[in-house]
Design a protein around this nucleic acid. Structure first.
Lengths: 213, 213
DNA sequence: AAGCAATCTGAGCAATCGGTCAAACTGTTT
DNA sequence: AAACAGTTTGACCGATTGCTCAGATTGCTT
């Protein structure tokens, strides 16, 4: 007996707490994505998470801190799909294609998180500055890789920083401006965006831009 | 006598009213750019415009209507660029280069307007839908021009809609995400972005992408 | 069953929200 | 000087904001 799958009280409590915190984070992401930091209300966040307002304030210390926590969480999610994360860097075309696909997929999977992050950056990124050093590292590595491709004449010369940013800009666009895309492509209400086509077109854009296609 | 430069009372009054309305619009753009529609307060807009809150409400009927008016105004500003860009369409490279430069310059000149517009589009563009038909026309024309270039084999084949949108995405990025750009390029506080270099790099990106460079 | 910490709740805080209103005040026309 | 439309003002509305707190309730441990 004494089955180990039978959790004791303390464990169950911590489990529950974790779930609630996760629900709060998700609710906050949705709310912040729609209303921004200033426009978001704790009332509404609580409601989305299935809590009362005082209950929410039992778990968080303030709206701003919740916002910051959310940003850090999103930042963590992102780190995994930076250019530098791809293993083999010998084949530029593969690296670029993979990065484009991963980033587009991420945007599709986490549209609200994507939007919160963008809005924060657009607003000046003041709440992120403490954590940007990690992002800096990733982009530094990526820039060095790109520069090495240029040096080895594997690709046409490009500004490694701007090149990265341009990929970021285009892929991010698909995550954040669905309304514009649907409008441009004249999609009906039920219709879905043909992401395979988009991945193709965006990959081709950047591959041609450095002479790989 | 009766010098015509001496305005009568009615004219002076209308002049004054116009100036105030303009101040309100500018104040609203700044506020909406920083806080979004939900986060913006009429109190704060009034302050920025040098007015009291009831005074502001004497000139506008509601926050939402002011927001809509601002969007229409920005939309109008934009149309001028589109029109100004399209001169001779015989030379794809020139058209693309000019458009990129104009769009980047516009973003530099009207960063807050640019941001308000982006935020609205990102939020779903509900307040813009009534006016999007005009934008649709512009993009339709542009798509036809691009397609004709492809047909005449002046450029490599591209999706004319996505190609437009990619240019929009990258140029818009420079307007809306200055914080990220400054961070990526490691600019000090006083330092300015080298826009000539950016124009070069972005133009090259899209020229190569359609085989023009 | 008693004890205890973790959690939840309704009531309520001062501050701000968008917006209104009557009354006072302007400058211009008669 | 009287009349007037156009404008400004302070006081104020009900609703909502972020947030607090004392006390009730819960679930686990002893």
């Amino acid at each position: 007996m004494a089955a180990p799958e039978k959790k004791n009280g303390r464990e169950r409590m911590l489990d529950r707490r974790k779930k609630i915190r996760e629900a709060i984070r998700q609710a906050a992401i949705d709310e912040f994505a729609q209303k921004g930091l200033a426009g978001a209300s704790t009332q509404s966040i609580a409601q989305r998470a299935g809590l009362t307002k005082p209950q929410l304030h039992y778990y968080i210390s303030s709206k701003e801190e919740l916002y910051e926590e959310v940003l850090v969480h999103i930042n963590d999610l992102w780190r995994d799909i930076f250019i530098a994360s791809s293993g083999d860097t010998k084949d530029p075309a593969k690296v670029i294609r993979d990065y484009v696909r991963n980033k587009l997929e991420f945007g599709r999977r986490h549209p609200n998180a994507s939007r919160v992050f963008s809005n924060e950056v657009a607003a000046g990124g003041h709440y992120l500055q403490k954590h940007w050093h990690s992002a800096r590292e990733s982009t530094q590595v990526a820039a060095e890789i790109i520069q090495s491709w240029v040096d080895k004449k594997l690709i046409k010369p490009v500004d490694p920083w701007l090149f990265q940013m341009h990929i970021w800009a285009v892929t991010q666009h698909y995550a954040d401006y669905e309304a514009q895309i649907r409008f441009m492509l004249q999609l009906k209400d039920g219709e879905e965006i043909d992401m395979d086509h988009v991945v193709d077109e965006v990959s081709t854009l950047f591959l041609r831009a450095c002479g790989l296609k």
